[in-house]
Design a protein around this nucleic acid. Structure first.
Lengths: 196, 196
DNA sequence: TCTCCATATTCAATGTTGATGAATAAATTA
DNA sequence: TAATTTATTCATCAACATTGAATATGGAGA
């Protein structure tokens, strides 16, 4: 920080260095856990420079995050093949992306709601559904069901997508009913060879 | 504020009043948008009293939130009937709960990640899937698929449930494949099925 | 009833935080 | 070369959550 005032010599890529430092810190400590001063220190820069370049902390975060989103999930490949294999390809794309990159770590743990909601979903909903179903694959069926339900809650309420949120309850029932029914079905594992 | 120092006469339920005020403000303005000072003002109390009673802002929020969770989703009723009707009853319970109560408003909009993620899910994933599917009910099928995918992302990555998160990618594919397949299927209700 | 301690409350201060405006120096343009 | 635009530091701000000190009441035991 003991640098000179005024514009520095050359055209150092300071802005990029800030974004890089921010990305690392956001990944490690989440949004709230990362202060502008920490980013500035990491980038060896005065913290005011961040506001200058990115407008605000949210602006910086948005830029760093959107960069990640742009790189993510190459949908073209997924949508290129035959319709029959689409489910598999979609699932594979999602898990490949999220398992391998650091993208998921950008998910700021919303330390408050998220924890409560997770515990509730896990112990109450999932546990009791599995108990109700019984049988050897009860847990797996419950997981599938919780996924659909969690997806509904997430895309309709927690973080409403307009297309989903503006449906009536009846439409939601009609559209998701068959899906949830299949999720809850027992899927005999070794009965059929099937392809992967 | 112009009150006397020291313990007040009688045993006024100040703690409860604070919780009540906090609940209202959290509902209206979310977690970050609600300051301890605002809660204190609403409850006609010094803001230091909140730290005294609840330890911290998070402590207060946790108490208010957990109260809501306890009241929510009467699973017993859902699990009481015949297995065949379970999907419908589950869906109904979820939508009834979340449509009618204020519970969903406690979902602190994680103003940062959530917005980006929502826009991405809506415009990229949902839009392109619907475009790919084509046909009259493409949007509905895309919504169902996005729900499953969003549920997977949410319960496995964003807010990982242990049971779901510790699965291998292959297990995820196996368990959710049939579900997603059905979500993507055309569901002819009033007309004959035509693929694609 | 008197004494003491735990409890409830206000007040004042502290240390962070994100942001802003002024000063300054290099780059760029005319 | 002169003027303007851009990049940077410094000093400061207001808001925030939290903490410590001061003070007054409630309740338990004599």
């Amino acid at each position: 920080m003991n640098k000179l005032r005024g514009r520095p010599r050359g055209n150092p890529p300071t802005r990029a260095r800030i974004a890089e430092a921010a990305r690392g810190l956001f990944l490690r400590h989440g949004y709230r856990g990362t202060t502008l001063r920490a980013i500035a220190a990491e980038a060896c820069v005065d913290s005011a420079l961040i506001s200058y370049h990115f407008g605000s902390k949210q602006g910086l975060f948005g830029e760093v995050t959107q960069l990640q989103c742009a790189e993510s999930l190459a949908l073209s490949t997924v949508l290129a093949g035959d319709p029959a294999g689409l489910p598999d390809r979609l699932l594979r794309a999602v898990t490949d992306l999220w398992d391998d990159t650091e993208f998921n770590r950008l998910a700021v743990q919303n330390e408050d709601v998220m924890r409560v909601f997770r515990e509730y979903l896990e112990s109450e909903v999932l546990g009791r559904i599995a108990e109700y179903l019984g049988g050897p694959d009860a847990t797996e069926r419950a997981i599938a069901a919780v996924t659909v339900i969690g997806g509904l809650i997430f895309t309709r309420y927690l973080n409403p997508l307009p297309a989903t949120a503006r449906l009536s309850a009846a439409d939601v029932h009609r559209i998701l009913g068959p899906t949830l029914r299949v999720a809850l079905q027992s899927r005999p594992r070794y009965a059929l060879a099937g392809r992967r």
